[in-house]
Each structure stands twice: as C-alpha cells, then as structure tokens.
Amino acid sequence: MLQNSAHDTPGRRDVVSFRVAEQDFCIDIGVVREIRGWTPTTVLPHSQDYVKGVVNLRGSVVAVVDLSARLGFGPTEPSARHIIIIVMIGDQTIGLLADVVSDILTIDDTAMRQVPDIASEVARDFISKVVTFDDGRMLRKIDLARVLPELGVELA
C-alpha cells in the first residue's frame, strides 16, 4: 500500500505517473491506495461503456474504470500486463485500468502549467494541469473528481 510521501513539501507534490493508450498521465500519490495486477472483472449490466465491471478487493466491491475509454482513446482489451490503480476519492474506492505505472515523481508546482485554451472543453474538464520537464517530456495530470463517474455502485 502506498502512503503519502515525506517528500510532499510546500511547492512540491508526489505523483504516480502511468501510461494509458501510449499516453503519459499522473495523479497525486495521496489518493493512491495500491497498485495491483489486472484481474478479470464482473460486468455490471447497463453500466457506462468505460466501466469494465467490479472486482473484489479484500471483501469490498470496487468498480474498475477503463481510463482509455473514459479519456476518449477507445476501450482497452485488458491482459495480464495491465494494472489497476486503486484510488480513494472521498469515501469511494475505485480502480483505474491503465497500461503500466511508469514512476513515482516529485513535481515542483512551477512545472505545472494550465491546459491550453485551445484544448476541447472535455480535455480541460478531465486534465487539470500539464506537467513539463526540462527534457521536453510532459505529463497530463488527471482531475479524478471529473473523470470518475457517479457509478451507482454501493461500495463497501
């Protein structure tokens, strides 16, 4: 289980970076509870197309959201190489299906930029910041509060 890092200091934050549909994203490490390998889900009838289903996480029912489908890149055909990032948002525990976790990074707040106005409204809704690096790499910071749907699943 991941915990908040001692590296979180004013002006800096720790993030988990990961890949979805060959694109790089990140989320604050404080919401991440664990990272686990892919396990098949139990499909929920009439759920959104980006909800893969639910898994049993030590007795709790956890919905798994296909980030690729939710972000508009198309559905993921999960395999043993995929991972589920278990996050806690408010009182809900949700799994995020991703290709791979890349790294845990400490990011300077000065490296976080606004999403350009030219980006679509949907892109600006789902992406809160763009993180830039000196070597030209960029990460998109996902706004989980907007990406994660009202699943209608009672989570234990």
Results as ranks from 00 to 15, higher is better:
D91S: 15
I29P: 02
V87D: 15
S5I: 00
I94D: 07
Q48D: 12
G11F: 05
Q23V: 15
Q3E: 08
G90A: 03
V55H: 00
D91P: 03
E77Y: 02
S5Q: 08
I86L: 05
A80V: 12
E22D: 11
I94M: 01
L97A: 00
I104Q: 14
S68D: 04
P45D: 13
Q23F: 07
Q92Y: 09
L151N: 14
I118W: 14
I94T: 10
L155G: 05
I86M: 07
E22C: 03
I35Q: 06
F73T: 00
L71H: 06
T93G: 11
L67G: 10
T106D: 05
T93L: 14
D103G: 09
L148T: 10
E22G: 06
L97M: 02
A21L: 04
L57V: 12
M112Q: 15
D24E: 14
F25I: 06
G53C: 02
I127L: 01
D28E: 09
V31Y: 09
I35S: 13
A80H: 12
V122F: 01
D117G: 08
G136S: 12
A69L: 08
R36Y: 02
D66M: 12
S128V: 10
L67P: 12
V62W: 01
I86W: 01
F73L: 03
V16Y: 03
S128R: 14
L96S: 04
R140I: 01
P40C: 08
E22P: 00
V122L: 09
S47H: 04
V20K: 00
T132A: 03
A145I: 12
V65I: 15
D49T: 14
V61H: 10
I107R: 02
M112G: 10
L151W: 02
A119W: 00
M1T: 12
L2W: 01
V64R: 01
V153G: 04
C26P: 10
D28L: 11
G30Y: 02
C26E: 07
I29E: 00
G72D: 11
P116G: 02
R81V: 13
T9D: 06
G30F: 06
Q92T: 13
Q92A: 12
D66I: 06
P149G: 04
S68K: 04
Q48A: 13
R13H: 09
M112A: 14
I142Q: 06
R140E: 13
T132G: 07
V147A: 15
I35F: 02
K52E: 01
T41S: 12
D134N: 06
H82C: 09
F18V: 10
V147Q: 09
N56W: 04
W38D: 08
D143G: 06
Q23T: 15
D117C: 01
N56R: 02
V16K: 05
I107A: 11
S120K: 01
V131Y: 07
E154W: 06
L144H: 05
M88K: 09
N4T: 15
R12M: 13
M1V: 13
M138T: 15
F133G: 14
G37N: 03
G90C: 02
I142H: 01
D108Q: 14
Y50W: 08
A63Y: 08
G136E: 04
A156Q: 14
I86A: 04
P75G: 03
D66V: 04
G90R: 13
V43Y: 02
A111M: 10
G74I: 11
A156P: 07
A80C: 06
R70E: 00
D125M: 14
T132P: 01
Q48K: 13
R58H: 05
L105M: 08
I85T: 13
S68C: 06
I83Q: 10
L44T: 07
